[in-house]
């Protein structure tokens, strides 16, 4: 991404604010510092000079905001439960892995396996993402994960999807060079919905498991609040986003494998 944002200049004496310099800090120490800060009642933590430290926000169960400057390592916000993590740069693999609740915002691109097995919460990626994104997301009556990608996604998007909402908007230059999603989209999906905006080739959808149709007004209304939130976070124009056609990929069956097996005599 371009135009890396600078950390805020909040007053150091604010008791709810803490800045942690991650330069040369091992992830274990960094996470200890973050947990300590939360224990001290800090609500807003800025981590600067982040350089690939893994597991930032791992398992945090607190309503705090963690702003990250620099590039965090894999498994950002894994098992996180309630916090908000904002990355003012690109992120790596497995962002929001098994996320329980809370929100992760990435102002750049992110890598593979984003939102693996998400149970709830939101992951917003401004740019493009890699392979196997949003796989095996789940859903409960009062908990529904939402993963929105501003750019494009590679192969196996929403594989084994069991619930939740996956949205790929194709707003980046990458999208203009081709379709918004790679091959095998929705393979093994048996729940949830995938929304794709813009050009989608028919053969990119795993037709054994999923069917694609143009989004109805009802379909779009279902995601409108999340889309508005995404646009507000990144400064996109919601009307322009909605001006393009949206496609919905939904599972053909809730039990795609049921008929494949017979009892051994």
């Amino acid at each position: 991404m371009t135009g890396i944002e600078q950390p805020s200049q909040l007053a150091a004496e604010d008791s709810e604010y803490l800045r942690i310099d991650a330069k040369g800090l091992h992830y274990r120490l960094l996470n200890e510092r973050i947990r300590e800060a939360i224990g001290d009642g800090r609500k807003y933590i800025e981590v600067v000079n982040v350089h690939g430290q893994r597991y930032i926000g791992d398992g945090i169960q607190a309503h705090v905001q963690i702003d990250i400057y620099g590039i965090p390592g894999n498994d950002l916000a894994i098992f996180m439960d309630g916090a908000e993590v904002v990355v003012h740069n690109n992120a790596q693999d497995a962002v929001g892995n098994t996320l329980n609740s809370g929100r992760v915002i990435v102002h750049g691109d992110a890598g593979d396996v984003i939102g693996y097995g998400m149970r709830g919460g939101k992951v917003f990626i401004r740019g493009d993402v890699g392979y196997r994104v949003g796989i095996h997301m789940k859903e409960e009556p009062r908990r529904k994960p939402v993963l929105i990608v501003g750019g494009t996604a590679a192969d196996f998007l929403g594989e084994y999807l069991a619930g939740g909402v996956l949205i790929v908007l194709g707003l980046t230059d990458t999208a203009r060079r081709g379709t918004v999603v790679g091959d095998y989209c929705g393979t093994g999906m048996h729940g949830g919905r995938i929304y794709l905006r813009g050009t989608v080739e028919e053969d990119h959808i795993a037709e054994r498991f999923a069917e694609k149709y143009e989004a109805t007004e009802e379909d779009l209304n279902a995601i409108l609040p999340d889309l508005a939130e995404f646009c507000e976070v990144f400064g996109f124009d919601l009307d322009k986003v909605l001006a393009e056609r949206f496609w919905v990929v939904k599972p053909s069956s809730r039990n795609p494998y049921g008929a494949s097996y017979v009892p051994n005599p």
């Binding site: 149970r119 095996h136 789940k138 859903e139 409960e140 908990r143 084994y160 069991a162 619930g163 093994g188 048996h190 729940g191 809730r254 039990n255 795609p256 494998y257 049921g258």
Partner: peptide, 10 residues
């Protein structure tokens, strides 16, 4: 399991 009722658990 945190999944919708009646759907296959894969």
């Amino acid at each position: 399991r945190g999944i919708p009722e009646g759907t296959e658990a894969l």
